[in-house]
Design a binder for these strands. Structure first.
Length: 420
RNA sequence: CGGGACAUGGUGUAACGGCUAACAUACUCGCUUUGGGAGCGAGCGAUUCUGGGUUCGAAUCCCAGUGUCCCGACCA
């Protein structure tokens, strides 16, 4: 994409109403626009990051046989009353609205009830199970306090997957598999090293569950984590008996304390929702059983914000290649020699032909310093400069965002290296 | 929801109760410039969050509301 056509611009100074690193850098870079506290619009650069994260998740979920769908944000109250999650006493973060005829509606903060209800239409036999369905859908949560930029919002895109199994054994098998799936997802996104499978007590759906916590000072939780075994436990749950309940021995681990933020969770729901809403199947003998369910969430903006919290320096963001808005930032430094822009445009076209995503800074009226500052702020992994100097030196100047030294390479080599 | 802080051009800031609300940046025009947010000049841009009050006079003081951030509580 031509940077001269990009409608967003960078800002030298951060917004006065944001303190968190993720929001500051993302706003300055033109990735997001704040609509109100905890509610953000995603601009072209930000949307590309969101889509990249979604693609990774989608790919990993499809690998284990999940099917994508999309449910509604508007929710009628009946199904929620059946599980006792409609009243404000039980769920205090509903956004409510109503139809013109005063029928009460809610804006979904999660989707266990609707998906369970939908599946009543399609599940009747043991032959229909197991299966897994997921969506990327906006959640609305009327948080008492939005905070930390993208890390806790009131409206946000979430991947939520639901598993439908015949019984606990079948469920447990998938639940275990999901631990690996999540591990792959976070590794591919680039935060695997900082992310820990974390034991959690007192979860909403079952006494014990696992969540995925990423070490970052911007997080809300304190965890005890074992770097080698990649396992953690919430500090509040750090007790012998809880280890025992999870089937672990505390002394087998070497724990360190750290601040972390939750990036994903996996819950066993059991038959709570299927029983309440009547989702049952017939076994071989024609006997009815409730479906055994699980739910598995990842907040997409929260992951994006966490990536920024972890990967940045004083100049800006340093995107992991897998989620970066573009792979290459091509910078043309204007000069009287028209050969510079000719070469740059050719390189741009060549990379595009090879399917490499390039942001081409073709702006002629912008100084070199500003282009470099923009490139550092936006944080695209590879920066390639075409200028008089680089052409005299033999081609293009290539530099990775996370390295300080650049190399002159021939244009052909640059194409080869970047299109691998 | 309890506590604290803040609210001024698009953005970031300044301004003792008293001049036409200042500066930087961004933007527009002209010239110059092109390897780390360039220079000169000229311009555009504000109902100082809203509503009351005090005062001869309020961006400034008081009250209420709204918004934003932070701490805590909460956190499918």
């Amino acid at each position: 994409m031509l940077q001269s056509k990009l409608f967003t611009k960078t800002r030298k100074e951060g917004p006065s109403d944001e303190v968190s690193k993720n929001a500051e850098l993302l706003v300055r870079g033109g990735f997001i626009h704040k609509e109100m506290a905890g509610v953000y619009s995603y601009l072209p650069l930000g949307l590309r990051v969101i889509e990249n994260i979604k693609s990774i998740i989608r790919d990993e979920l499809n690998k284990v046989g999940s099917q994508e769908m999309i449910m509604t944000a508007l929710q009628g109250k009946e199904i929620w009353e059946k599980t006792d999650r409609w009243s404000d006493e039980v769920v205090d973060n509903w956004f409510r609205t109503s139809l013109k005829n005063d029928t009460e509606l809610g804006l979904a903060f999660t989707h266990e009830e609707p998906i369970t209800n939908i599946m009543k239409e399609f599940v009747s036999s043991y032959r229909d199970l197991p299966f897994y369905a997921y969506q990327f859908q906006t959640k609305f949560r009327n948080e008492l306090r939005a905070k930390s930029g993208l890390l806790r919002g009131r409206e946000f895109l979430m991947k939520d997957l639901y598993s439908f199994s015949k019984n606990k054994e079948e469920h447990d098998e998938f639940y275990e598999a999901m631990k690996g799936v999540y591990k792959n997802i976070f590794e591919r996104i680039g935060i695997g090293e900082n992310t820990y499978l974390t034991m959690s007590n007192g979860a909403p759906f079952s006494k014990y569950s696992f969540e995925f916590q990423t070490l970052t000072d911007a997080g809300e939780d304190t965890i005890m984590y074992d770097e080698k075994k990649k396992l953690a436990i919430n500090k509040a749950d750090y007790a012998e008996e809880i280890f025992a309940d999870f089937g672990f021995k505390k002394e087998d681990f070497n724990f360190k304390e750290g601040v972390a933020g939750e990036v994903g969770d996996i819950y066993s729901l059991g038959t709570k929702y299927s029983k309440a809403l009547g989702l049952t199947y017939k076994d071989e003998n024609g006997k009815d059983h409730p479906v055994y369910m699980g739910s598995y969430g990842i907040g997409i903006p929260r992951v994006m914000g966490t990536v920024v919290e972890i990967f940045s320096d004083d100049k800006g963001i340093i995107w992991p290649e897998s989620v970066a808005p573009f792979k290459v930032h091509l910078i043309e430094l204007s000069s009287d020699d028209t050969n510079v822009s000719t070469q740059a445009m050719e390189l741009y076209n060549e990379l595009e032909r090879k399917g490499v995503e390039v942001l081409y800074d073709d702006r002629s009226e912008v100084s070199a310093g500003e282009k470099f500052a923009d490139a550092d702020l936006i944080g695209i992994p590879y920066r390639i400069v075409i200028s008089n100097r680089s052409l005299k030196g033999g081609g293009a100047e290539l530099k990775k965002r996370n390295e300080s030294d650049s190399n002159i390479v021939s244009i052909e080599d640059a194409v080869k290296m970047l299109s691998e």
